[in-house]
Computed example of a mutant assay.
Amino acid sequence: MKLLAELVSIPSPTGNTSKVISFVEKFLTDAGVETRRNRKGGLIATIPGKDSSQHRMLTAHVDTLGAMVKEIKPSGRLKIDLIGGFKYNSIEGEYCQIQTNSGKVYTGTILMHQTSVHVYKNAGKAERNQENMEVRIDEKVHSAEEVRSLGIEVGDFVSFDPRVELTKSGYIKSRHLDDKASVAILLQLIKQINTENITLPYTTHFLISNNEEIGYGGNSNITPETVEYLAVDMGAMGDGQSTDEYTVSICVKDASGPYHYGLRKHLVNLAESNQIQYKLDIYPYYGSDASAAIKSGHDIVHGLIGPGIDSSHAFERTHRESIEQTAKLLFHYVQSVFAQ
């Protein structure tokens, strides 16, 4: 949980993830695990197994939702363009950071232009969209020229304050639990395998991808020997969903279609034989690195599991129990033989 809190506190909107990748890289290096970066900037750790003729791949993504500066308004405020699939209402009132091309960081707040109820009669009814929402920069600026003099320009990345909090009751509340909760789980798993000298049945690759939120983080660097590909990502909660904050969610289908039936049954058998609490679920408006890998033409078996996350792509929350159940299933999965 401490590692997760650290991860969500590092800004990493898709397209600007080098800082968090370096954090992950150092964590694994300190644990004695060798890594390499792919050309996209993602990180891969490979642990040799008994059988090197067949491989497994697990992935979790470290990139998050965010925004870019779309326009510098004459008023000195910023119009933004969203990165990832979420709605403007989910960031209204949020503190943010603007990172300039030179690396300088400014703070601000994302607000409706018509925020003040003392001035704007339609403050509550105005649509939350790109035209009406803007960033109020915490600097003394009143024009586009003054903003540009700070070094802020179109294309600068905007990241959202995670507001991370660990509660005494075992919850973690934060933005970007999607998918840094899963990244934290995989990092601890890799460290445990290495520290305890656990021998895996197959050579296993762990990809920390950095473009999942825009659809293609994990669709490459898959070895020809890879048989199974398991994405570790959030379980989506809401009306009609089985997923909760206390179990591991095993996805059977998302917007891309069904996940591999044999691998799904294998994961369920592992959960039941090891007293792991799980839920099967369908995520109707969802895609993963595993589905991206399938769409890119790789001949693999694909699956998707993860901790249950409430209010995904907004004010997210999960519980320690969901983290633990997901970690247990992964621990047994990487030591199991292929489902086929």
Rank of each mutant, 00 (worst) to 15 (best):
residue 68 M to S: 12
residue 64 T to L: 03
residue 81 D to F: 04
residue 76 G to M: 05
residue 85 G to S: 10
residue 80 I to Y: 07
residue 64 T to V: 02
residue 86 F to R: 08
residue 91 I to L: 08
residue 76 G to V: 05
residue 63 D to C: 00
residue 95 Y to W: 07
residue 76 G to F: 04
residue 64 T to Q: 04
residue 82 L to D: 02
residue 83 I to H: 01
residue 76 G to A: 09
residue 76 G to R: 04
residue 77 R to D: 04
residue 93 G to R: 03
residue 86 F to H: 12
residue 69 V to R: 12
residue 80 I to Q: 04
residue 59 T to D: 13
residue 56 R to F: 15
residue 67 A to I: 05
residue 88 Y to R: 13
residue 75 S to L: 00
residue 74 P to A: 00
residue 73 K to N: 04
residue 87 K to A: 13
residue 72 I to L: 13
residue 58 L to P: 08
residue 62 V to H: 02
residue 83 I to V: 05
residue 68 M to V: 10
residue 69 V to E: 09
residue 59 T to E: 09
residue 89 N to L: 14
residue 73 K to S: 01
residue 86 F to M: 06
residue 81 D to N: 08
residue 75 S to V: 00
residue 65 L to H: 09
residue 94 E to D: 12
residue 69 V to N: 11
residue 65 L to N: 10
residue 80 I to D: 03
residue 93 G to F: 06
residue 74 P to G: 00
residue 77 R to V: 01
residue 72 I to M: 11
residue 58 L to Q: 07
residue 76 G to L: 08
residue 60 A to R: 07
residue 94 E to V: 06
residue 95 Y to I: 09
residue 65 L to V: 14
residue 77 R to C: 05
residue 70 K to Q: 12
residue 84 G to D: 03
residue 77 R to H: 04
residue 78 L to Q: 01
residue 64 T to M: 06
residue 71 E to M: 15
residue 95 Y to S: 13
residue 93 G to V: 05
residue 80 I to S: 02
residue 86 F to Q: 11
residue 57 M to G: 14
residue 74 P to H: 01
residue 88 Y to A: 11
residue 68 M to G: 11
residue 70 K to T: 13
residue 73 K to I: 00
residue 86 F to D: 05
residue 69 V to I: 12
residue 65 L to W: 10
residue 94 E to G: 04
residue 72 I to V: 15
residue 57 M to Y: 14
residue 89 N to F: 15
residue 58 L to V: 05
